[in-house]
């Protein structure tokens, strides 16, 4: 029971982080039809911004600056690197995104050095629930991700801007004919994705208070896997895929015999799901050519 409960909470909490990152991948894919492989590195940038502003010892200010900084960076990357390539071959955009990813990692290494930096944002301590000791930070992470995902779902479904995003993801031309500024919607999408990535950076620092220039690399790939498992382009799919992957990872870590193979297990699930259901769990069949 104890093991079950703590694994459940940790799995959901990690899954929530993956889901937050996966949302950035899936929304950008759905609307700009591109894979933004620099998305994971936004997490790292968010982490470093928190690290820098924690010098002032004000966690809320640091978090706020991380979100604002990542949003601006996301918009800048889109304007400088991706917008000129609109209409170019998907391969050119993909390679550019990988280039931006390395650029961000290298810049971080030049500025902050290659050694890990330690930063404690806030020590929530631990709490005992039903006789099970648990990290409060995991509960906070879970709570915040649930609220953010619910808010995002409501935003997409019930606001003018949210519906415009659905319209653009479905048919850019028809959306323009409604008077929707497609470039504006793409900018907003990058801004939202980057804000979520900044929060993910915060959650990683709450989990383990250490940061390096590659902080975002593995979570980025895991979250991309989650987005594909859930069905890339689908918002509920990204949430589902993220939670699923987080649970699998936590359960696998708890079983000594297979713990070292956790990453392999996660990516094998991706391969199996792609073989059985190429569009992922909630993905749509795509008719257009790539």
């Amino acid at each position: 029971m104890e093991l079950f409960l703590s694994t459940l909470i940790n799995g959901l909490s990690l899954g929530g982080i993956y889901a937050m990152i996966a949302l950035g991948y899936t929304m950008v894919y759905g609307i700009a039809k591109m894979l933004n492989f620099a998305h994971g590195d936004i997490i790292m940038v968010g982490g470093y911004i928190i690290y820098v502003f924690m010098a002032l010892n004000n966690p809320l200010l640091a978090i706020f600056m991380a979100v604002v900084g990542c949003v601006l960076l996301g918009i800048l990357i889109e304007k400088v690197a991706y917008k000129p390539l609109r209409g170019a071959s998907p391969l050119a955009v993909l390679i550019t995104a990988i280039g931006v990813s390395y650029l961000l990692q290298s810049l971080a290494q030049i500025i902050f050095g290659s050694a890990n930096k330690m930063v404690t944002v806030y020590d929530f301590g631990s709490v005992t629930i039903l006789g099970v000791p648990m990290q409060v930070s995991a509960l906070v992470t879970l709570g915040v991700t649930v609220v953010v995902m619910a808010a995002l779902t409501l935003f997409i479904k019930y606001t003018r801007l949210g519906r415009a995003m659905i319209a653009v993801s479905e048919d850019k031309g028809a959306a323009q004919l409604m008077g929707i500024n497609v470039n504006g919607i793409i900018t907003i999408t990058f801004a939202i994705g980057s804000a979520l990535a900044a929060l993910a950076g915060l959650f990683y620092l709450l989990k383990a208070p250490s940061i390096s220039s590659t902080l975002g690399a593995m979570p980025g790939i895991k979250a991309f896997t989650a987005a594909v498992i859930g069905g890339i382009g689908s918002i509920p799919g990204a949430m589902l895929g993220g939670i699923l992957l987080g649970m699998v990872e936590c359960i696998s870590y708890k079983i000594t015999a297979i713990a070292p193979y956790t990453d392999a297990i996660e990516f094998s699930i991706l391969i199996i799901i792609l073989l059985v259901r190429p569009t992922g769990f909630l993905g749509k069949k795509r008719r257009e050519k790539v």
Binding site: R163, I166, A167, E170, D171, G173, A174, Q176, L177, M178, G179, I180, N181, V182
Partner: peptide, 21 residues
């Protein structure tokens, strides 16, 4: 998108309604 705001609207070929809405 600005032309639409000026009062010119088009029903495109193949209708192109938003299928998921």
């Amino acid at each position: 998108h600005k032309i639409v705001h000026l009062g010119m609207t088009q029903v495109p070929e193949g209708r192109r309604i938003f299928q998921e809405l």
